[in-house]
Design a protein around this nucleic acid. Structure first.
Length: 776
DNA sequence: TGATTCTACGGTCTC
DNA sequence: CGTAGAATCA
């Protein structure tokens, strides 16, 4: 196969570059994924580099999966053993630490390769606990703020001790105290947080010279995507891996650096040529994605930045439509305008794909409400996802406790869920004891039991708990993954707890857990171990939930990075919202917002519609506040803009109350907040380790109700209305009993339902034949 | 101890 | 408006 066909000269020279450092400055839509994948294929086919000697690193699992698919396809689907490794930084580090991390114990006492991963919810739980212990609360500092403070300290490699040394005020030394305890607790639980995954991988390679050489030889060629968003440890990792050969190709665009707040260091890309003096630099400046109007508008905005290398993308494409601009009366009107326009676009062309982008997640709510008003299904990316749900986290916490009972955060989570008589006082007693004797909660529990220092009632409860954990631990070596989960649900009483109460929500929780069991079974079939499964659950990202087949996707601009749609809306272009108020006082912050704007705009292929609202309320009940149009709007050349009708959506104030009520109710019943579209596929995606080729559905069945050309009249009452059977409905089946509908394909009698029946798992049923009844 | 109600408070982006 | 934690009651 000719991997050079159809490439422009710059792309071609990037693909054919073999040895030595290469910096690829690839503008938005310039075909960089194509270049990376073709370069990998070219190395393998033309230069006979063994596949596994190539390591490509991306930012999200999703991007990695996609790239892997494309590479494998180019290579004619080689065996797994012969395939290049495509991974995220985090997964790569986890893999290294699990396989070859033994010697990290030299420099991190207590470390074993069975470590746990603490995600940010675990971090917050831990910080909360520490605050409690040292008598602080959220008034001192918000938990998340504390977490990011610690993260920054870590990325600067400042130890708590150094913090003490340099602290001048009592606040800083308190921060240092929390930081110190935080680190102690992680070590005690043999846990690593997201920062540690990278930091410890770096430390391991620095410490273990043999391993460093081994890795340097194993991966002869390294590629890094989205290089502008790498942080310090990722940079160091790159240096360590390429110490032997310098065969590194980084691809990035300084104009798309949007993760400064997360520690991304834009200097990594700006200084690449200094770090690798022999670097070849290639610029990809031809855009193949957008119309001229879109490209010029986006370029004009980002040209207002000072901190950039400077480039100007060009395109062969025609002018295309002008950028639409809509000035809404208020946020509800804006949402209605978007929904209305989406409806027009989709009724003209049902196979069109549309994205609505916004700065902050909370903006999605109103847009969801408006879309539902039109019966239009949509996919929300981000927000509250499957693996963040309480029941999922609970069950995963049980598994973590079985792996390491010293994981105190996990233990604390499940010790009294379901309620088993271990109350606040008992737990406090254990915490105090653990603190005083520097023990994990689990060790403390056992010690106190030995010393018979609990009240009789508490003691009985704790003994039963202890026995249960030990019993379940035995399963780890004998049972397959899904069976372990089932047994945990049964033995802990978690399943019974959900079955016995009549809360409609419990039913969907149960369905979620069944789903988790299914995911575990699939993982087991792929030969994954329990740790693999837990790793995966910890490392999935919101963006991984995206499904391109959705007709309408709602997501933040951050999550939209690397993606494209024919039609893109950008909502809420107001000073203080976008650019966000937190970035108004610093130049660097403002430039990052502007880059984000550039990223958002360049997602659009054919049509870009910007909107803002003159009034928006900050809290649900408060008064609407007057807004000023975003400065970014003024930075778009006037002649590229077409103002859209002022009176869209009837120009009248519309009360979305009824819809809002209904959305809330559905959301409560539904499995995945907002994700009314193909939620099942999402879960499969969350847990699929490798990018299995999802079957390409033809036209997405995203329509829930007949399209309305006009704003439909407001429903009289939000309740007591006959709803079509769809996700969230509960149905009755003659054989399987009651079950929850997860997905519907098709309409009426022909509709095919995917239903989760407690005890039977998932069934696909056709309404007409199955004889199921809708449950009220 | 556990379930329920009340109240105060507050909102970037995320591997 | 939604949530977390406090306060209250069974």
């Amino acid at each position: 196969m000719d991997f050079l066909a159809g490439l422009n000269p710059q792309q071609r020279s990037a693909v054919t570059h073999v040895e030595g450092p290469l910096l690829l400055l690839a503008g938005a839509g310039s075909g960089k994924t194509r270049v990376i994948t073709h370069r990998i294929a070219h190395l393998v086919e033309a230069h006979h580099v063994p596949g596994p000697a190539i390591l490509a690193v991306t930012f999200t699992n999703k991007a990695a999966g996609e790239m892997r698919d494309r590479v494998l396809k180019l290579l004619g689907n080689p065996e797994y053993r012969a395939a290049p490794l495509v991974s995220t930084f985090h997964s790569f580090c986890v893999r290294m630490l699990r396989r070859d991390g033994k010697r990290l114990a030299d420099i991190r006492p207590g470390f074993t390769r069975q470590f746990n991963i603490y995600d940010d919810d675990d971090q917050v739980a831990l910080i909360k606990q520490i605050f409690r212990n040292v008598g602080l609360d959220e008034k001192f500092m918000q938990y998340r703020a504390m977490a990011s403070w610690i993260s920054h300290a870590k990325s600067r490699k400042q130890s708590p001790q150094e913090m003490y040394g340099s602290s001048k005020d009592p606040k800083t030394s308190r921060l240092a105290t929390v930081y110190e305890r935080y680190e102690d607790r992680l070590r005690q639980a043999n846990a690593l947080d997201f920062d540690d995954l990278l930091l410890e991988a770096v430390r391991l390679l620095e410490h273990d010279e043999d391993l460093r050489r081994q890795y340097g030889r194993r991966y002869e060629f390294l590629m890094i995507d989205e290089y502008q968003d790498t942080n310090r440890s990722q940079y160091e990792l790159m240096r360590l891996l390429t110490g032997e050969h310098q065969n590194v190709c980084v691809v990035g665009d300084e104009d798309q650096s949007i993760y400064g707040w997360r520690g991304a260091d834009i200097r990594n890309i700006l200084d690449f040529e200094r770090d690798y003096p022999k670097a070849t630099v290639i610029r990809l400046e031809q855009n193949y994605r957008s119309t001229k109007n879109i490209l010029e508008a986006a370029s004009a905005v980002v040209a207002h930045n000072i901190e950039r290398k400077g480039k100007w993308l060009w395109t062969d494409a025609g002018e295309g439509e002008k950028i639409g601009l809509y000035e809404a009366l208020d946020a509800e009107n804006e949402a209605l305008f978007i929904a209305d326009t989406v409806e027009r676009i989709l009724s003209a062309n049902p196979s069109e794909r549309v994205a609505v982008l916004y700065r902050t997640n909370f903006q999605s709510r109103q847009i969801e409400e408006a879309l539902r008003r039109y019966g239009r299904n949509y996919l929300v990316v981000g927000g509250f996802s499957f693996y963040q749900r309480a029941e999922i986290r609970d069950l995963l916490a049980y598994l973590r406790v079985l792996v390491t009972p010293h994981d105190s955060i996990a233990l604390l989570r499940i010790i009294n869920t379901p309620a088993r008589g271990i109350g606040k006082t008992t737990i406090e007693q254990m915490e105090q004891f653990a603190l005083a004797n520097e023990l994990s909660l689990w060790s403390a529990l056992r010690r106190i039991l030995d010393e018979q220092a609990f009240s009789a009632r508490a003691e009985a409860a704790l003994r039963a708990f202890e026995r249960m954990v030990i019993e379940l631990t035995d399963l780890l070596n004998t049972e397959p993954l899904d069976e372990i989960l089932r047994r945990v649900m049964e033995r802990t009483g978690y399943g019974r707890m959900l079955e016995s109460d009549n809360d409609p929500e419990s039913e969907s929780r149960l369905a979620n857990l069944n789903e988790l069991v299914n995911a575990a079974a699939e993982a087991a079939e792929r030969g994954e171990t329990l740790t693999d499964f837990l790793d995966h659950a910890a490392l999935v990202a919101d963006a991984d939930g995206l499904d391109e087949r959705a007709a309408v996707s709602l997501l933040t601009m951050h999550n939209a990075k690397g993606l494209e749609w024919p039609v893109v809306f950008m909502a809420g272009l107001e000073e203080g919202l976008f650019p966000h108020s937190r970035s108004l006082d610093s130049n660097a912050g403002m430039e990052e917002e502007r880059r984000l704007c550039y990223v958002g705009m360049t997602r659009a292929q054919k049509r870009l519609i910007l909107s803002w609202a003159r009034y928006r309320r900050r809290f649900g009940g408060g008064q609407p506040e007057a807004c000023v149009a975003s400065r970014f709007l003024k930075e778009v050349p006037r002649e590229r803009i077409a103002k859209l009708r002022e009176d869209a959506a009837g120009g009248r104030q519309v009360d979305l109350y009824a819809e809002r009520h209904e959305v809330r109710e559905t959301v409560k019943r539904n499995l995945y907040t907002g994700q009314t579209y193909n939620s099942l596929d999402n879960i499969a995606q969350y847990f699929a380790e490798r990018g299995i080729a999802a079957p390409r559905a033809p036209a997405p069945a995203t329509r829930a109700a007949a399209p309305a050309a006009q704003v439909p009249p407001r429903p009289a009452a939000p309740v007591a209305k006959r709803k079509p059977v769809g996700p969230g409905s509960s149905v009755n089946h003659p054989k399987y009993g009651r079950g929850m509908v997860l997905r519907r394909e098709g309409d009426g009698e022909e509709a095919k339902l995917t239903v989760s029946f407690p005890g039977y798992g998932l069934k696909k049923l056709v309404v007409k034949y199955a004889g199921i009844k809708l449950d009220e």
